[in-house]
Amino acid sequence: MLQKKNRWQHCSVLANHAVLALILLVINSSSQVSAAVVTSIRPLGFIAAAIAEGVMPTEVQVLLPDGASPHDYALRPSDLQRLHDADLVVWVGVEMEAFLGKPLMKVATGKQIAIAPLAKIAGLLMAGSQHDQSTDDHQHHDHQTDDPPTNDQHHHHHGDYDMHVWLSPKIARLAAITIHDNLLELMPQKKDKLDANLRRFEDKLAQSEKNIASMLKPIRGKGYFVFHDAYGYFEKQFGLTPLGHFTVNPAIPPGARRLHQIKTQLIEREAVCIFAEPQFKPAVINAIAKDTNVRTGELDPLGNGIKLSRDSYMRFLSQLSKQYVSCLE
Score class of each variant (00 low, 15 high):
residue 85 D to H: 02
residue 309 S to F: 04
residue 287 A to H: 11
residue 181 D to M: 02
residue 151 N to W: 09
residue 210 K to I: 11
residue 39 T to H: 01
residue 88 L to E: 12
residue 269 R to S: 14
residue 255 G to T: 09
residue 60 V to L: 12
residue 11 C to M: 12
residue 240 L to V: 05
residue 153 Q to F: 04
residue 145 T to N: 06
residue 296 T to P: 01
residue 213 A to P: 00
residue 180 H to G: 06
residue 293 N to Q: 05
residue 159 G to A: 15
residue 238 F to N: 03
residue 149 P to H: 06
residue 244 G to T: 10
residue 137 D to M: 13
residue 178 T to Q: 13
residue 309 S to K: 06
residue 174 L to W: 06
residue 213 A to T: 10
residue 76 R to K: 15
residue 125 L to H: 00
residue 71 H to S: 07
residue 276 A to M: 14
residue 108 A to K: 08
residue 41 I to V: 14
residue 50 A to M: 10
residue 89 V to K: 01
residue 307 K to P: 04
residue 134 S to G: 01
residue 101 G to V: 10
residue 198 L to V: 13
residue 268 E to G: 04
residue 93 G to R: 02
residue 133 Q to G: 02
residue 304 N to H: 04
residue 312 S to C: 13
residue 56 M to D: 03
residue 8 W to S: 08
residue 298 E to Y: 01
residue 4 K to P: 01
residue 36 A to G: 07
residue 206 A to V: 15
residue 99 F to P: 02
residue 15 A to V: 11
residue 318 S to G: 12
residue 11 C to L: 14
residue 197 N to L: 14
residue 117 P to S: 05
residue 255 G to L: 11
residue 91 W to A: 10
residue 149 P to G: 01
residue 272 V to G: 02
residue 310 R to I: 09
residue 17 H to R: 05
residue 133 Q to P: 00
residue 35 A to D: 04
residue 155 H to C: 14
residue 211 N to Q: 13
residue 170 K to Y: 08
residue 86 A to C: 09
residue 319 Q to I: 13
residue 175 A to L: 09
residue 175 A to Q: 05
residue 150 T to W: 10
residue 58 T to D: 14
residue 225 F to N: 08
residue 241 T to G: 06
residue 80 L to Y: 00
residue 170 K to W: 08
residue 221 G to C: 12
residue 290 K to A: 12
residue 171 I to M: 06
residue 202 E to T: 14
residue 50 A to K: 05
residue 25 L to E: 03
residue 72 D to H: 06
residue 308 L to W: 10
residue 279 Q to F: 14
residue 179 I to M: 00
